[in-house]
Design a protein around this nucleic acid. Structure first.
Length: 387
RNA sequence: GCUGGGAUGACAGAGCGGUCAAUUGUACUAGACUGUAAAUCUAGCGCCCUUGUGGCUACACAGGUUCGAAUCCUGUUCCCAGCA
């Protein structure tokens, strides 16, 4: 993999560039579409190619647990996705948080209480998952195994196992876990036997000194790129402002000549904040998950296409949209009807639109940076109409 | 025409003497979703207000039995099935 910066915004850290891999080229800044189990939920094979998607990220944890003994026969992400493009895999680190600390804290998406606790046990050597969704038997994952699995999965970019910081962790715990994340990054680097690009993950929560220390520590090592983790926007009790700060503290110390990925973010304003903070790639489940749930993202903000009032709106999901759904004649009324009928075509059209929209949004941001108009772009970016 | 079975909130469909303004599902309304335990989850959904162990009107219609009826009885209207 090679990375080249080819343009910079004078007013911020924003930059344009290209990531080149054997599988293709990614123009940055770019959105990475989430296909957890080597498929993008809601889409049909062949759909991805129509959505301007440049990169897809899949998940080591869920593929490892789901495949079991069949892991060795896994044909590779591209074959499984039915899509010839650039791929990356997450390390399983996020599940250390989402199945572990998040649940143990009694939190869940949307503030709902989790009823299953004690799934994850973290030690300095690795992580034990006892996940009822996969039989509940203890399964041990460590940086070396994560790399071995990711080599089998065959993405262009792989990530070192980390322990994500959480907004509700104390500074003391965050420091302790940061030590693990750093040690695991180095173990991952030593364990690697392929020519896949390896990213390390910067953590440190919202503690400035820990963030900076993390970026400095990892930044001097020969990783091919860096991901920033544990930021979450305003989910899980943090704030968007925190995320923007965490990004800047990190990019202060990360090498300019390597790509920076911001894990798990985000919404439109988060993307602009991230790009202005020096981020090159993002991944988030929002376009796909929210699409499946009926939320349509547009240049005007978002709306819920399943609302009853959509029944007589015989117009595209977004006016003037060239996405595969809108350009094929999909209307709000039609998509609402499909959702109502539990027809998977409804979520599919919504996801097609959202994925196209987010990819287009990033494309427009790239143009704005090249044209020196990022500030204007921000000024006319959609109001998200949230909160 | 006879015999039997029905008529419950937008719809479907529970309830079959009090604890029923009425289970449940759908629709509808509002909200949530940020390295995917999620085509999911939460809340509301007769009317009124001083928002409460509040008031009112309701289970086809009219009457009756009962301390008390969506629930039992009688009649009426309509629907369905079988037989003529």
């Amino acid at each position: 993999m090679t990375f080249k910066v080819d343009g910079k915004d004078p007013g911020s850290r924003a930059r344009t560039g290209t990531i080149e891999t054997e599988s293709g080229t990614v123009e940055t800044p770019s959105y990475v579409i989430v296909g957890t189990r080597a498929s993008v939920r809601g889409l049909e094979p062949g759909d991805l190619a129509t959505t301007k998607t440049q990169m897809v990220i899949s998940n080591t944890y869920h593929l490892w647990q789901g495949l079991g003994e069949n892991l060795n026969e896994f044909p590779g992400l591209q074959d499984e996705l039915g899509w010839k493009g650039v791929t990356m895999t997450d390390s399983g680190g996020f599940q250390v948080f989402s199945l572990g600390a998040l649940r143990d804290e009694g939190k869940r998406r949307g503030g709902q209480e989790s009823e299953v606790k004690g799934v994850v046990e973290v030690s300095n050597s690795g992580v034990t998952f006892s996940d009822p969704d996969y039989g509940g038997e203890p399964q041990y994952l460590d940086p070396e195994l994560s790399i071995r699995i990711q080599e089998q999965l065959g993405a262009d970019i792989v990530v070192a196992l980390d322990e994500p910081s959480a907004p509700f962790h104390t500074e003391e715990y965050t420091r302790e876990s940061l030590g693990r994340t750093h040690a695991w990054a180095m173990r991952a680097m030593q364990a690697r036997t392929s020519d896949q690009a390896l990213y390390a993950v910067v953590q440190g929560g919202a503690f400035e000194e820990l963030r900076r220390e993390s970026a400095r520590t990892l930044g001097v090592l020969p990783f091919d790129g860096y991901a920033i983790g544990g930021t979450y926007g305003d989910a899980y009790g943090g704030t968007k402002e925190d995320t923007a700060k965490m990004v800047r503290w990190s990019t202060d110390h990360l090498p300019e000549d390597r790509p920076r990925h911001l894990f798990g973010v985000g919404e439109l304003d988060d993307l602009i904040d991230g790009v202005e903070g020096g981020i090159d790639t993002f991944d988030c489940v929002i376009p796909t998950r929210e699409g499946r749930h009926g939320r349509i993202w547009t240049h005007e903000g978002y709306y819920d296409v399943t609302r009853g009032s959509m029944a007589d709106r015989h117009e595209p999901l977004e006016d003037g949209c060239a996405c595969p759904a809108c350009s094929a004649g999909a209307t709000k009324a039609m998509v609402k009807e499909l959702f109502l009928a539990k027809n998977p075509e409804g979520p599919r059209l919504a996801v097609l639109h959202n994925v196209w929209f987010f990819n287009t949004f990033m494309e427009e941001m790239r143009h704005a940076i090249r044209d020196g108009k990022l500030a204007e772009f921000r000024a006319r970016a959609p109001k998200q109409l949230r909160k």
